[in-house]
Amino acid sequence: MFDVFKAMLDGVPWTIAVTLLSFTIGCLLGFPICWLRMSPFRVISFATASLVLIIRSIPPIVWLFFVFFGAGGGLLNLSPIAAAVTGLGIITAAQMSEVYRGALSAVPVGQYEAAHVLNLNARQRFVDIILPQMLRIVVPSAATYAISLLKDSAVASTIGVTDISAVAYQVTQQTFKGIEVYTTAALLYLLLSVPVALFSRWLGATLNTRISK
C-alpha cells in the first residue's frame, strides 16, 4: 500500500502545476474578458458573451483535445502540459469573467458615485474602491471553482500529462491493484482540496470581520 502511495506522489506536482497555472491564467484573463463583456458597445458585448457561452458549454475534455490535437497538431507546437494549462486556463477565464461580472454588479452604485465625487480617477476608483469590495464577493465562488478545477485537471491525463490520474492509471496497469490505487488517488485529491476550502473560509471570514470590526 505504501509503495502505491509513494508511486502516486509523482503525479501530485503535475496536478498542482496544472491547477495553479490554469487558475492563475484564468483569474487574470477573466478581467479583460469581463471588461469586454460589460462594454457599452453592443457588438463587443454580444461577441464576448457568445464566446464565453461557447467556452463554458464545451466539456473540458473536448476543449483540451481541440487545443492539443487541433491547434497543437496543426498550428502550434504545444507540449501536453502547455496545452492542458492553456485549455483549462481559457475555460477558467470564461468562468471567472462571469464571477467578476456578478461581483461588479453587486457593488452598490453609491460606491461608484462617491468615488466619482471625490474626484478619484478611473484607476483609483477601481483599485482603491471597487476591487477590494469585489474581491470579497469573488472569494467564495473562486474557491469553489478552484476545487472543481483541481478535480477537472484530471482530464489533462488524457493528453499525456503525468498527473495523479495518469500515474494512477499507470500503476494500476503494473500492479492490478485498482481499489488501492484509485482510493489513494481519491485521498490525494481530497488532501489537496481541503486546504483550498479552509483557506477560502478563513479569507472570507477575515474580510467580513474587518468591515464590521
Binding site: G110, Q111, N119, L120, R136
Partner: peptide
Amino acid sequence: RRRIGMVFQSFNLFPHLTVLQNVSLAQVR
C-alpha cells in the same frame, strides 16, 4: 468637481476602509 463636495442620502462610505481612511484617501490621491 474639485470645488464641489457632495453628501448622499445613503452616506456611501467605503465599507472596506476605516473611518480615518475614508476621510484621508481622496486627500492623498
